[in-house]
Design a protein around this nucleic acid. Structure first.
Length: 276
DNA sequence: AGCTACTCCTGGTAGC
DNA sequence: TGCTACCAGGAGTAGC
């Protein structure tokens, strides 16, 4: 599932292919990918616009556009579960699961492949107010050990659903939450306000270490869905300590990794390393 | 405030 | 072999 490291990898590898390009015609093969927007409005918004910059906010890919040197709104893409964004030469036939295509002015097409159809494109001009309320970036300057401790203190929620809440902290998903909680030695059902300062500091370090290491390895690919824009799998799945390791020995203590359901999410933990 | 349940989706797979 | 039922899950929403 694309989370922060996978989206960051997508943006980094896509950037050189998109920045400076002028957009042409569009093809839409699944209407709901556009949310409520009509194909005509979508095509009008993109055609003739130049890509000014590409960046990531939380799990969103933000494509800033311009027209005649002035701001031209923004295209925002969320990959959700199975979305992939990449560039193909025009002569390469589109994969049957491609839902949206955008022509570039260099003989290539930007393609959005999405087997489960949860991914979304949005366009807004001006670019502001397109994203929902989001918490700080875990790898940004706002996310300090002090901020985390203070924010946890005010919450009575269980730590795992809280960390998955994009309005609390932006970019984490099911995999990296499980990994970070294990690395910090925190049980996923712990009430946030009861996480003490030393555990909170460990959690802060674990979140940053996990995400940074995953970005270095271009994300995690453990099924056929996530691939980089170059078509390669990431390799962080080989570093997983708990995710998908139910029944296998914990790499820290040797006890068996268990799986439980927390907030409708599969949750992996070592009961010995992560006591309540 | 925070919980559960439900929706959107479909390929893969477990069970028979 | 071939069928069905169920599963994964990010985010939004409804209802308690």
């Amino acid at each position: 599932m694309p989370e922060l490291p996978e989206v960051e990898t997508t943006v980094r590898l896509l950037r050189p292919h998109l920045e400076g390009r002028v957009l042409g015609q569009v093809r839409v093969h699944w209407l709901r990918t556009l949310g409520g927007m009509s194909v005509a409005a979508f095509a009008r918004s993109l055609r003739g616009a130049r890509v000014r910059s590409l960046h990531r906010r939380a799990k969103y890919i933000v494509v800033e556009l311009e027209r005649d040197g002035a701001p031209g709104g923004a295209l925002v893409v969320h990959l959700r579960m199975t979305g992939r964004l990449y560039v193909d030469p025009a002569h390469v036939p589109a994969d049957p699961f491609v839902k949206v295509e955008v022509e570039l002015d260099n003989g290539h097409w930007l393609r959005f492949l999405d087997v489960r159809k949860f991914g979304r494109f949005e366009y807004s001009n001006p670019a502001a107010s397109l994203l929902p309320e989001l918490g700080p970036e875990p790898l940004g300057p706002e996310f300090t050990p002090e901020w985390l401790q203070g924010a946890l203190k005010q919450r009575r929620r269980r730590i795992k659903p809280l960390l998955l809440d994009q309005g609390f902290l932006a970019g984490l998903g099911n995999i990296y939450v499980d990994e970070a909680l294990h690395q910090a030695g925190i049980h996923p059902l712990t009430i946030a306000a009861r996480v003490d300062r030393s555990r909170s500091d460990r959690l802060h370090a674990a979140i940053q270490a996990t995400l940074s290491a995953a970005i270095e390895r271009e994300g995690s690919s453990f099924d056929r869905f996530y691939r980089t824009p170059e078509g390669n799998p990431g390799s962080y799945q080989h570093q997983f300590q708990v995710y998908g390791r139910e029944g296998l020995p914990c790499r820290t203590c040797g006890r068996v990794i268990e799986r439980m359901v927390v907030g409708q999410r599969g949750t992996h933990l070592c009961r010995h390393c992560q006591k309540r």
